[in-house]
């Protein structure tokens, strides 16, 4: 197990080396949050209180955190794997006694820690102290942690599917961009799922994406969630996590047979 901890540590250390990257990622997310704040304030101005059962504070918190989580989980796993295939560096991982899926996940976790410092902490600071929305309670925060871990696991496995696809296609540029857009939209990170039309909301319920953003964020901003509802949410997340993990195990066993090592 210790070797995987070393990978996490190393991935984190490698990412903080580039200082400018560090500062600019922090800044860009803060700007985005400021934009959603004014955009949704304008939308709410004519509406007298709540739209689709959500107050302005809830919507703003939901969206600001959603984009922060999106940045938090943006670990470039799929891009990294495709890069490894195109340049043939994948061989260096294959000659080490390590599981590729776990290795990629550890790299992603290291990156998440980095993202947490650069993106999530400043965002949380701004949301809580500058905009003072005041809907988050400490107990909600506690309940929020476990769903976040599961959300990361699901998000990682979706990236990893795309990454494995590069074993066949080498470049995944188009697929990855499409994935980002689909995930952002169907997970409720751009527009809260409560704002979706009825049919779309039903479809989204059958997809794994809402388990990444919608479920943890709903848990965070709900005022009185029953235990039953909480466990139901966790159940949905857990099922998706297991299903995607199993799918990836199978996909890997197929993809590794066709892997080509470019160059040299």
């Amino acid at each position: 197990m210790k070797k995987y901890l070393m990978i996490i540590r190393n991935s984190f250390m490698s990412s903080i080396i580039y200082r400018f990257h560090f500062f600019f990622t922090s800044l860009s997310n803060v700007f985005y949050i400021i934009i959603i704040y004014f955009l949704w304030r304008a939308i709410y101005k004519g509406s007298g209180g709540s739209i689709n059962g959500m107050t302005f504070n809830q919507t703003f918190i939901y969206l600001a955190l959603a984009i922060s989580i999106f940045c938090l989980f943006k670990t470039w796993t799929d891009w990294g794997m495709s890069y490894q295939i195109i340049n043939g560096i994948i061989v260096m991982n294959l000659i080490k006694p390590m599981d590729i899926q776990l290795l990629e996940m550890c790299n992603a976790i290291g990156f998440v820690f980095y993202n947490f410092i650069t993106v999530t902490l400043p965002a949380l600071f701004i949301i809580i102290f500058i905009f003072q929305p005041g809907v988050i309670t400490v107990s909600n925060l506690m309940l929020f942690l476990l769903p976040m871990v599961l959300a990361f696991f699901i998000s990682f496995n979706i990236d990893y599917i795309i990454g494995l696809t590069s074993f066949y296609t080498e470049s995944i540029w188009g697929i990855s961009i499409a994935k980002d857009t689909i995930v952002l939209l169907l997970s409720g990170a751009l527009i809260p799922i409560n704002f979706f039309p009825e049919i779309l909301r039903k479809i989204v319920g059958f997809l794994p994406f809402q388990a990444i953003y919608h479920i943890p964020l709903t848990i965070l901003i709900s005022k009185d969630m029953s235990i039953y509802e909480y466990l139901k949410f966790l159940g949905i997340q857990l099922s998706w996590a297991i299903a995607l993990y199993a799918l990836n195990r199978f996909y890997y066993s197929r993809a590794i047979k066709v892997v080509t090592v470019n160059g040299g």
Binding site: N10, M13, S14, I17, V91, M92, I95, P97, G264
Partner: peptide
């Protein structure tokens, strides 16, 4: 198997680039 072998590719490094 790879626990008991070593591999060096002249054009690539098995060391970590940044550290």
């Amino acid at each position: 198997y790879v626990k008991n072998i070593g591999v060096v590719f002249g054009q690539r490094t098995q060391l970590w680039w940044e550290i």
